[in-house]
Computed example of a mutant assay.
Amino acid sequence: MTQLTARDLMTPDVVSVPPETPVLAVARLLSERGISAVPVLGPAGEVLGVVTEADLIRRLAGQEDAKPGWFASLFVDPAAEAERFAKTHGVRAQDIMTETVLTVSEGDTAAHIAHLMEERNIRRVFVVTDGRLRGIVSRADLLRALVAPMPEEGEFSDGRLRSAVIAAMRKQPWADSFYTLVDVQEGVVTFHGFMRDEGVRRGLRVLAEAIPGVKGVKDETQPMPNYLFAGV
Rank of each mutant, 00 (worst) to 15 (best):
M1D: 15
M1C: 11
M1F: 09
T2Y: 08
Q3W: 04
A6L: 12
A6H: 07
A6D: 12
D8A: 10
D8T: 07
D13H: 13
D13K: 15
V14Y: 10
S16Y: 02
S16W: 04
V17D: 05
P18A: 06
P19A: 11
E20D: 12
P22N: 04
V23T: 05
V23G: 04
L24V: 15
R33Q: 11
R33L: 10
S36N: 14
V38N: 11
P39M: 00
V40G: 02
V40Y: 02
L41H: 06
G42L: 09
A44H: 11
A44Y: 06
L48P: 03
G49M: 05
G49K: 13
V51N: 13
V51R: 10
A54V: 10
A54Y: 01
L56T: 10
R58C: 03
R58L: 06
A61F: 04
G62Q: 02
G62L: 00
A66I: 14
W70P: 13
W70C: 11
W70Q: 15
F71R: 03
F71V: 08
L74W: 03
E83Y: 09
E83P: 09
E83M: 12
E83A: 14
R84F: 02
A86V: 03
T88V: 15
H89G: 00
R92Q: 15
A93K: 08
A93R: 05
D95R: 01
D95Q: 02
D95W: 01
T98R: 02
T98K: 05
V101L: 08
V101H: 07
L102G: 04
V104H: 03
I113E: 08
H115K: 15
L116Y: 08
L116H: 09
M117G: 14
I122Y: 03
I122S: 03
R123Y: 10
V127A: 09
D130L: 11
L133N: 11
I136W: 01
R139V: 02
A140E: 15
A140S: 13
D141M: 02
D141N: 12
D141R: 09
D141F: 00
L142Y: 09
L142C: 12
R144E: 15
R144W: 07
A145I: 08
P149D: 10
M150P: 02
P151L: 06
E152S: 14
E153V: 04
G154Y: 05
G154M: 07
E155F: 07
D158T: 10
G159K: 01
G159Q: 10
L161F: 08
R162M: 14
S163P: 06
S163T: 14
A164H: 07
V165R: 00
A167H: 00
A168K: 11
A168F: 05
A168R: 14
K171R: 07
Q172C: 08
A175F: 01
S177C: 06
F178Q: 09
F178T: 10
L181E: 09
V182D: 01
V182A: 05
Q185N: 12
E186D: 12
G187H: 03
V188D: 13
V189E: 03
V189M: 01
F191V: 12
H192P: 10
R196G: 09
D197K: 09
V200T: 08
R201I: 00
L204Q: 00
V206T: 11
V206A: 07
L207T: 08
E209L: 09
P212L: 04
G213V: 04
K215E: 08
V217Q: 00
V217E: 00
T221S: 03
M224E: 11
M224N: 13
N226H: 06
Y227H: 14
F229K: 15
F229L: 15
V232D: 15
